[in-house]
């Protein structure tokens, strides 16, 4: 082999020094891929005065962390981030570059890919290494990244391959890669970088910024009781909360229920909400669009309650109850109270 293969790179997203969960998920996945390719896992984190949060990246599998600091990198704006990352990619030539498919990641990665003339696949839900034969050009590509993603509103699953020069770039959906348990004794190397950021990257200014902590993070929930349009009204969501309280569970919702204004968006499960995989998911009055199913179909156990026996939600359910949730849920509460 003429040239040594590049490493696996992961963009580490941080807000006020706190690393996003998806970045740790990608470090873990990156470690697995790097082991398969016999290369290193390297992380790149940007900001200003970043301290304290770096160690956890080593614990989860990073070998090297590029710590890029400049006051133009805080708060986040796309242009200086893209410029700093592009110059590192050109210098270090990684084989793969992974970015979380968050709001930030989804505006940053394409900007970078366009400059690098790199292939980029959005919202991957799985990544594998395999060989690829390009039938058009009749070329063999060894050990390429298989970039697997749903498309067409979730009706198809496509496997995409980048055949041009590295890096092979992907954004990866939040919550789909698993975080393996950290090894606290694992160490790595920090490389501090002082980036050069041109004036033309500083032409967008943040004038005002208002954020609120999420009212709930369903990604960590063990049991989720989710309500859909079939719940009927904001008031009637009380019955969903009653079941949740009884079972010590959290409340989720379909987009239809959120759009109707019955519950806030932090509770939304599905393609435009969160992806969850609890040990139990009870879908109440949710028909089960592909977008919703994409966010919950990996739950260990799924119970669907719906009056329509043909509702698509039953296709992913382990237990189906064809009936009115207003009658079924009180019976569930009663049954549970009687057993424990």
């Amino acid at each position: 082999m003429a040239e040594k293969r590049g490493n696996v790179w992961v963009f580490i997203e941080q807000e006020a020094g706190k690393i996003a969960d998806v970045s740790l998920e990608l470090i873990c996945k990156g470690r697995e891929i790097a082991d398969r390719l016999d290369v290193k896992t390297e992380a790149v984190i940007l900001g200003n005065n970043l301290e304290g949060s770096i160690e956890t990246l080593f614990h989860h599998g990073a070998d090297v962390v590029y710590q890029v600091e400049d006051k133009a990198l805080e708060p986040f704006t796309v242009l200086p981030y893209a410029e700093a990352i592009v110059s590192l990619l050109k210098e270090h030539k990684p084989n793969i570059f992974m970015v979380g498919a968050t709001l930030k990641g989804r505006e940053l990665a394409p900007r970078i890919a366009s400059t690098m003339l790199a292939g980029l696949t959005a919202d991957c839900t799985d990544l594998q290494i395999d060989n690829f034969v390009d039938k058009l050009t009749k070329t063999d590509h060894k050990d390429k990244l298989m970039q697997i993603r749903p498309a067409f509103g979730g009706n198809i699953i496509a496997t995409i391959v980048t055949t041009w020069e590295d890096p092979q770039m992907v954004t990866v959906r939040e919550g789909v890669m698993k975080i393996t348990s950290p090894n606290k004794s694992r160490k790595g190397k920090v490389v501090k970088v002082k980036p050069e950021i041109s004036a033309s990257s500083k032409i967008v200014k943040v004038i005002e910024r208002i954020t609120q902590e999420k009212s709930i993070d369903l990604k960590k929930s063990q049991i989720i009781i989710a309500g859909g349009y079939g719940v009927g009204s904001k008031e009637n969501f009380k019955i969903i909360y009653d079941l949740a309280n009884t079972l010590n569970a959290d409340v989720g919702a379909s987009r239809a229920a959120v759009d109707a204004g019955w519950i806030n968006h932090d509770h939304q499960v599905g393609q435009t909400g969160v992806t969850v995989r609890p040990k139990l998911y009870i879908a109440c009055g949710i028909s089960g669009s592909v977008q919703h199913r994409a966010g919950m179909d990996e739950s260990s156990k799924i119970i669907a309650i719906n009056t329509d026996p043909d509702a698509p939600i039953f296709s992913v359910a382990h237990y189906g109850i064809v009936g009115d949730l207003n009658e079924v849920i009180p019976k569930m509460i009663k049954a549970f109270r009687a057993k424990v």
Binding site: N155, I157, T159, T162, T163, G323, E327, K331
Partner: peptide, 24 residues
């Protein structure tokens, strides 16, 4: 730069679902 290697249609399969009667 990206090529589609494979497309799989998502098939709705109604298997293994245990039908629970909505009774007590």
């Amino acid at each position: 730069p990206t090529k589609v290697k494979k497309i799989q249609s998502v098939v709705l399969e109604a298997t293994e679902v245990v039908n629970v009667e909505p009774t007590g």
